[in-house]
Design a protein around this nucleic acid. Structure first.
Lengths: 226, 226
DNA sequence: CAAGAAATGTCGGCTGCATGACATTTTTAA
DNA sequence: TTAAAAATGTCATGCAGCCGACATTTCTTG
């Protein structure tokens, strides 16, 4: 990959806004480049050097399996997001992995060590990164709170609204989201059973809150979704 | 508070190990100092400048209340821990607050802005801080996973073992923890009802796993606690 | 296009645990 | 020291939602 392209990938990420164009052009820390199709597993912790990943195209999920074989989806990563060992801590081996949810996944990666070296030189970047990671954590933490307190219906509503706002096409109070998740996927995200998801979508449809099919989800009125 | 004392508080926190003694002595960023007794509420988000807190003595909990009046305890903070707006993000107002669990709570605080300025000057500190926050979050995340997947009994066992290991006096496989939490407190931590906690402690006692009273909890065999 | 695989729809039984109600014990504060 | 408050113990009831079982629909792949 030529350095001009690398430049643009990073330039478009707000994390690197603290660097001016000159600095950015000199970086070119992207070292890896990978494509994946739906269902492919991407291991985040290769035996060699730890990396940070950057999703250029498509959607992936970060998941893990506990000792009981329970699979949970921790995050949905979207175009432009960073993922991997964001905490910069490589001591504890996590059992997390990433899986492509769409067919056109493109991932860039750079070495954690390169990134750390970069931050040493640019304190602004370090600060900016810290805030960035902090925000991400906050978001996850709020998701967890939701899981614990609300019932399945509220959780699904919260998830759909969030999804619609983050990725959907909004027209007034109507939102249309491209649905690249199966009901099983959604069940794993909001920690309920597949059957409950089916039931809830049918309920929502009956109540006139949304239209659901395998291709897209149309929320008819965001205000009424609660 | 004289600068010699401030120096020691920070010196003992591993976050500041990346700074050498000279740098540290020049800092003296601690600006606040507060004492609290059992039950006192400490508001984390004063109307003036955002702060980061450092628990010098005692135990506190970080909790929040959702719109349904549900109270959850998010973390138990122990001597030496940092708390407050660790994500450095002050844009969203959180509804979190801290409450003293013991009678001899001492809290130091410093201004977020001072800390940020410090990180600008010392990229190593920023890096170290990011790792620190990452670790904290990882811990929280594992707690949440536990809440979501395991039943109340497993959650309580996990909590007690963790508590014993973090704070208890361990002799071989026996562990003794000073019990500064009410059953209500524990219920809020592992997200169950007070009655369930009572029942479980009685079960554990019957099964010969531990001795419980209001002053201390003695785990008879850590290996058998599972 | 056909056959197998994957995703969705539907039902009923079962259970962990929340919830309320109340008794008893311990602590706190006057 | 004593009354009120807080913490703990015990029980009966109800229900959200998990789980297994199976049917139907849709997608994938040779």
């Amino acid at each position: 990959m030529d350095s001009e392209v690398k430049y643009w990938y990073l330039r478009n990420h707000k994390l690197f806004w603290v660097l001016n164009n000159m600095q950015l052009k000199q970086l070119c820390i992207i070292t890896g480049f990978k494509k994946a199709k739906k269902g492919d597993i991407i291991y985040l912790f290769p035996s060699d050097a730890p990396k940070i990943y950057f999703l250029k195209k498509g959607n992936i999920k970060i998941a893990s399996i506990d000792e009981d074989g329970h699979e949970i989806t921790k995050e949905i990563i979207q175009k432009g997001d960073l993922f991997g060992e964001l905490s910069l801590d490589t001591s504890i081996k996590s059992n997390e992995y990433a899986q492509a949810l769409t067919n056109d996944v493109t991932i860039c990666s750079f070495l954690l060590s390169d990134f750390e070296a970069l931050m040493e030189k640019h304190p602004g970047l370090a600060l900016s990164y810290t805030k960035f990671v902090g925000l991400r954590f906050k978001r996850m933490s709020s998701n967890y709170s939701n899981l614990i307190f609300k019932d399945a219906r509220s959780r699904l509503i919260y998830f759909i609204k969030d999804w619609a706002i983050r990725e959907g096409v909004i027209e007034g109070e109507k939102a249309t989201v491209m649905n690249y998740l199966t009901q099983q996927d959604i069940a794993q995200i909001i920690c309920t059973s597949r059957q409950t998801i089916t039931q809830l979508f049918n309920d929502f449809e009956e109540e006139g809150l949304l239209h659901y099919n395998r291709k897209e989800i149309i929320v008819l009125d965001l205000r009424k979704m609660k």
